[in-house]
Write a protein that binds this DNA or RNA. Sequence first.
RNA 1: GGCGCAUUCGUCUAGGGGCCUAGGACGCCGCCCUCUCACGGCGGUAGCACGGGUUCGAAUCCCGUAUGCGCUACCA
Length: 481
Amino acid sequence: MSVRVRFAPSPTGFLHVGGVRTALYVWLFARHHGGTTVLRIEDTDTEREEAGAIEQIQRSLDWLGLDFDESPRVGGPHGPYLQSERSEHYQAAVDRLLAQGDAYRCYQTAEELEVARAEARQTDDPALPTRLHRDLTAEQIASFEAEGRPAVIRFRTPLEGETVIDDLVRGQVVFEHRLLGDTVLMRGGGRPTYQLANPLDDLAMGITHVIRGEDLLSSTPRQKLLVEALGGTFPQTAHLSMILGADKKRLSKRHGAASVEEFREAGYLPEALVNFLALCGWSWDGETELMSVAELIERFSLERVNPAPAVFDHEKLAWMNGQHLRALDAGAYTAALRRYLEDAGSPLADAARLDELVPVVQEKLGAFGEFDALVGSLLESREPDAESWQKLLNDEHAARILDAAIASLSALPAWTVENVESGLRAVCEELELKPRQAFLPIRIAIAGSTVAAGLYESIAFLGLEASLARLQHARAALADV
RNA sequence: GGCGCAUUCGUCUAGGGGCCUAGGACGCCGCCCUCUCACGGCGGUAGCACGGGUUCGAAUCCCGUAUGCGCUACCA
């Protein structure tokens, strides 16, 4: 039987790294086994739905390169895999369960339920409140109907026995039926709940492996019971651990960068994020860390997924991004950089000589987001950094250094990085200053900051004319002091 | 409260009875390289939650405790 897996987010907000990790594992598992990936939007709760969330989720998955074979994308060959468009399907299942006696109408009001729950909390049957209307008499039903009370549909969970889930990540997990309670399948308004829609769709779509977060582990026995009541076979499951913030709490917006979009905006490479997330709960041999997507696909297996929760480590991701960035060849680097600048709406995206800057920045950038600060001033003229400029003004040797640099650079036979270097070295010798001392004012004059790309490369990139103009401008500023 | 899951350096992890005086990586510290910032190189710091078993032998198996997380919704 070929593998069919799905990623089923609810459109309640952006895709955070925990969700992405799940999507990635689903995708890697499918690609590894030559299976099919399905994207299904679980929008049964219209209250919590957020406008634009579906598009944002899709955009994030696209950027990461996680392509889904069947998705609700407009114009796609399949779908619609929006649960909001599958109402008849759920209704039919509920009708059947009702007819079979595996489901029943429950007329409890919210208040009644709340009271019952509070009472049952301390007893040895905490699920009792969910089955108060399980065995209503015909008269009671008639009376509730006459009152015009809305009813929810509940599943008639067996009172005895237990369900064993043989999870691919966690092994056997046993759940007592008595403690499960009678799950609401259909809300008062006639819309299905997740507990109904999710397993039903997995069944209808022929899903073979359910790969999802551990938060859903306790729902699994209910869903298995439901599917079996419908005569179906429950898929294999793999429950992934949660991804936590530094405070060990479930990762959320409060933890800073948590959405894919934020990493994209900071100039992270999708393949770096993918690599990092793959290693967040899975490992290949415990040693190898830097892997391409192709390698991940080849090596991924659920057997090696770690059941323990993982804290999301921004620092390590940043390091890994730098590794991926430095591993790119010049052409790929230029393309990725330009794409980033375009995305960010930076005017630098149009710079014709972007490719010439690659060797200047590639060893230095941890993320493309740092590009502008490092070499933006080489591509367009900018106001120098005030603090740095003050250092230039306060430097007692600045004037003679700049004079010497101007003279030396003007006399270069050819404008190459090597010549610029020897020219500046000569300045140091002539003035009997150490490079670190002599280059400080030059750097500030050229780059507008004490922190910048390599000096020789920067000057070579700027060209004779522009370089001299900047040096002279700084020299003139000194004259005013 | 109940049920479930989890527990190896600060963090991600390797480890599935002797190969472990516990390996790798990020971070941190030190040194080197060096025109700033980085990169890079070398070295170092640091861990099997606790208590009982089982066994000749346990990080590895079992039980208990603790702690964390999840669920306990007409959220997913």
